[in-house]
């Protein structure tokens, strides 16, 4: 398989996953606005922070309003990290790899792109925004399921999986960070604290469809500490970081020269599993999540030196 083709399908999957996750992130933020009392100062700017877009925002926007934050995250075509840009890039990547993907893949993504492009103004108002975001999430899920069910699980499929998993792990770190940021800035009456914490974590879990899976695992009241454990260390939940890393190891086993990458993934996963005492809302947790993100970029670089930009004659 040509390196460039592998690279394109890998990024195709990353972009689609990013579209879905960005939609989830925006949606949960809007939900929180409805559930939390007015006295809680919810910052829309948190969305900018957890997607690491502070510099871009400072350059192109003035006030940290809901409008501006949502625009930057969702419909700003000049922001390479916005939902619409990710979708555009996904479409470009699929255009040039059409011949190795099921025919419906192109049709599906093209339709999604056209739909979002024609309804961009809906991002501006809350009710329409949620409706559109839900549609986008559903469409991404249908697409992922369609590939799973109609594609040969060949090299192309493996690179799609790798892209999806690494992006998913990355987004999970950002989601936990979002929760932590809230907890850190909360100024609640003592009695209310645990009550609103539960709302916050329930919403975060819902944003990645993790609520019921979490409930089945932990029958107690929702606690930030357990959510953290569930999303980083659980070995069975499809969006936990540990699970994603394990899956990456598994999907690359049939690719050429996977051993160095597998070792790197295993060692990262062990370090994450060994972490015990991080407190929600603490600086240490934020740094830990940052560290995981950096490790994931390192994995991304390894993918390049191993498969996407080989220097050795086979």
């Amino acid at each position: 398989m040509l390196s460039k083709v592998a690279e394109r399908v890998y990024w195709l999957a990353r972009y689609i996953e990013r579209v879905e996750n960005t939609a989830r992130l925006a949606k949960v933020h809007s939900q929180l606005m409805l559930d939390l009392p007015k006295s809680v100062k919810l910052s829309w700017y948190g969305l900018v922070q957890i997607t690491s877009n502070e510099d871009y925002f400072a350059l192109h926007y003035d006030s940290r309003s809901e409008q501006n934050c949502m625009k930057m995250l969702l419909s700003d075509r000049n922001n390479p990290a916005s939902l619409i840009s990710s979708l555009w890039w996904a479409r470009e990547n699929i255009r040039t790899t059409r011949d190795i993907l099921p025919r419906e893949a192109w049709i599906h993504i093209n339709e999604l792109y056209v739909m979002v492009k024609n309804h961009q103004e809906d991002f501006a108002t809350r009710t329409k925004r949620n409706e559109l975001l839900s549609k986008i999430i559903r469409s991404c899920q249908a697409y992922t399921g369609m590939l799973e069910g109609t594609m040969s699980h060949n090299e192309t499929y493996r690179f799609l999986k790798l892209g999806m998993l690494i992006e998913r792990a990355d987004m999970t770190t950002r989601l936990i960070d979002e929760g932590g940021l809230f907890v850190a800035q909360e100024v609640f009456e003592n009695d209310d604290e645990s009550y609103f914490d539960a709302i916050l974590w329930a919403n975060l879990l819902r944003s990645i469809n993790a609520y019921f899976m979490y409930r089945q695992q932990y029958q107690t009241e929702i606690s930030g500490q357990e959510v953290l454990q569930f999303l980083t260390q659980d070995e069975e939940f499809a969006r936990s970081i540990s699970y994603c890393l394990n899956e990456m190891c598994w999907f690359m086993r049939k690719l050429p020269n996977p051993e160095p990458m597998q070792n790197a993934l295993k060692s990262l996963q062990q370090k994450i599993s060994a972490e015990q005492k991080l407190i929600i809302g603490s600086n240490e947790l934020h740094n830990h999540l940052d560290w995981i993100q950096k490790e994931l970029s390192q994995i991304n670089r390894l993918l390049y030196s191993t498969w996407f930009n080989p220097k050795q004659v086979a």
Binding site: M1, L2, S3, E155, P256, W307, P310, V313, A314
Partner: peptide
Amino acid sequence: VLEDNCVYMRNIEGLKR
């Protein structure tokens, strides 16, 4: 094109003549 003057394509297995 490497120093041996041969043309290679970048493949996931490595460079292929």
